[in-house]
Design a protein around this nucleic acid. Structure first.
Length: 444
DNA sequence: TCTGGGGTCCTAGGACCC
DNA sequence: TCTGGGGTCCTAGGACCC
């Protein structure tokens, strides 16, 4: 067994770089990509970072920079980014023998036992991605995933801020070639908050204990890491010490939860509007569910006001259990809308809503049960239920070919009275009289 | 006026069972 | 008056990731 060695390849400022592939005029200009409804910045060019624009900065707070600095803002085009990502990933895969796609712009490559000069190999792949796809990347190489992530950070910083790290680490940083002393010098120059798995909260707690640099954290004992935080954090410390604890995941595991949520462009008060949004979310989520051949048996629906506004606040979610697991759009929509009606209260300005599919399992098990059911009864309902997955597959293929929302179901369908729900009178009366203590499961 | 969306995992504590 | 304890399951909440 060769010693473990990982690369992390990451597209720089990915969404901005995607836009620049098609708009050369954006090169060298400060540029951000905005989220849904142009709410906030979710990607920034280096020039935009230099202006002090933070990740997630609300657009209305930075829009004045358009005039004063020539900042350009673009609405996100996630379909485009997905396509460019796929192309980038296929080129990057040639770096080693196995690839784990970690996010839309990052993948880990297993370099264990790959012969030759790995720095040169990585530089060649970078050049190829640049030439064939048009996306600039940085590559970090190290004996553990956590160190490879850190190496990638160093590669980026060394390029973007000359002098922050040794110049030869810019773009491609191979930590496995460094001596222990050289590596420790790099770690001493890096803030602990840059470590994969150390968020704002843990960084604060660490700094309170005088653990400010990555080198400090590397010197923490795994036992202390576990006692003070968690087993995950212990693993992080071990990985910094060079012990590989996180393996490659070759096949993407199927999702355990599927969510579809949106903030509204402006406040929504109307139940009909919310119903329409929740129906849309349900349909999208159901399609994703079928895409991984899954079925769900619990639907969570939530609505909430804006925590940023000084208006009356309201936030509720409700988990609606289904009588049987399903991937049927109508059944899921119907349950979500039922849940929505139960938690809806008028007189609030809603800023966001969403649907989540929980308790997901493989549809193969469900299909077996249907078959047994049909064989047992041979009834009309069983037969129509049998036809349902075919209808759903047809729906998905039409929507995929002609665009989302081309085809919708006209009716919500029957037979979705949730298990565990007794249809009490309260549910049929206007929602604001609904008694909370009668709800099955409530998450505040 | 206007503040993203989609995930994962861990842990504490309550419910429940015997 | 005395009033178990261990195991397991579930959920809510918190923290992290990009």
């Amino acid at each position: 067994m060769p010693a473990p060695l990982f690369a992390l390849v990451d597209g720089n400022n990915f969404y901005v770089s995607c836009e620049r592939v098609f708009r050369h005029s954006l090169k060298n200009t400060p540029c951000v990509v905005l989220s849904n409804n142009d709410g906030c910045a979710i990607a920034r060019s280096n020039e935009a970072k230099d202006l002090g624009i933070k990740m997630g900065a609300p657009w209305f707070q930075i829009r004045h920079l358009q005039e004063s600095t020539g900042l350009v803002a673009l609405s996100a085009n996630f379909e485009l980014y997905g396509e460019i990502s796929a192309r980038m990933m296929s080129v990057v895969a040639a770096l080693g023998h196995r690839q784990e796609i970690y996010s839309i712009d990052e993948s880990f490559i297993d370099l264990s036992g790959v012969p030759g000069d790995l720095t040169k190999r990585a530089c060649d792949i970078r050049a190829r991605v640049n030439q064939w796809v048009g996306i600039p990347t940085c590559i970090g190489i190290a004996p553990t995933k956590t160190l490879a992530k850190l190496a990638n950070h160093i590669a980026k910083q060394a390029e973007r801020k000359p002098g922050s790290y040794p110049a030869e680490l810019a773009q491609v940083a191979d930590l496995s070639r460094l001596s222990e002393a050289e590596l420790d010098a790099l770690l001493a120059a890096t803030s602990v908050g840059e470590v994969w798995g150390v968020g704002r909260r843990i960084a604060e707690q660490l700094k309170a204990q005088s653990v400010g640099t990555v080198l400090d954290l590397k010197r923490m004992s795994p036992a202390a890491a576990r006692a003070g935080w968690s087993v995950i954090f212990e693993r992080t410390v071990r990985e910094l010490q060079g012990e590989s604890c996180v393996d490659m995941e070759d096949v993407a595991p199927s999702k355990q939860e599927i969510a579809c949520t949106r903030s509204f462009g402006s406040a929504v008060r109307d139940l009909d509007e919310l119903t329409e949004a929740v129906s849309e979310f349900s349909a999208r989520a159901a399609q994703k569910l079928r895409g991984q051949a899954g079925v769900t048996s619990q639907i969570l629906v939530f609505i909430r006001t804006s925590p940023f506004r000084q208006t009356p606040q309201y936030s509720r979610s409700l988990v609606v259990p289904l009588r049987r697991p399903t991937a049927d759009t109508a059944a899921i929509t119907s349950a979500a809308v039922m849940g929505l009606r139960a938690i809806f209260k008028p007189e609030f300005d809603y800023a966001k809503a969403g649907v989540m599919l929980l308790d997901i399992s493989s549809s193969k098990v469900e299909q077996l049960e249907l078959d047994l059911d049909a064989a047992d009864h041979g009834s009309a309902t069983a037969r129509s239920r049998e036809a349902r997955p075919h209808l759903m597959a047809a729906l998905d293929s039409v929507n995929e070919r002609y665009g989302r929302g081309t085809l919708k179901l006209a009716s919500a369908g029957a037979g979705v009275v949730p298990r565990n729900w007794t249809m009490k009178q309260e549910l049929r009366t206007p929602a604001y009289t609904t008694r909370w203590e009668d709800m099955p499961v409530v998450r505040a």
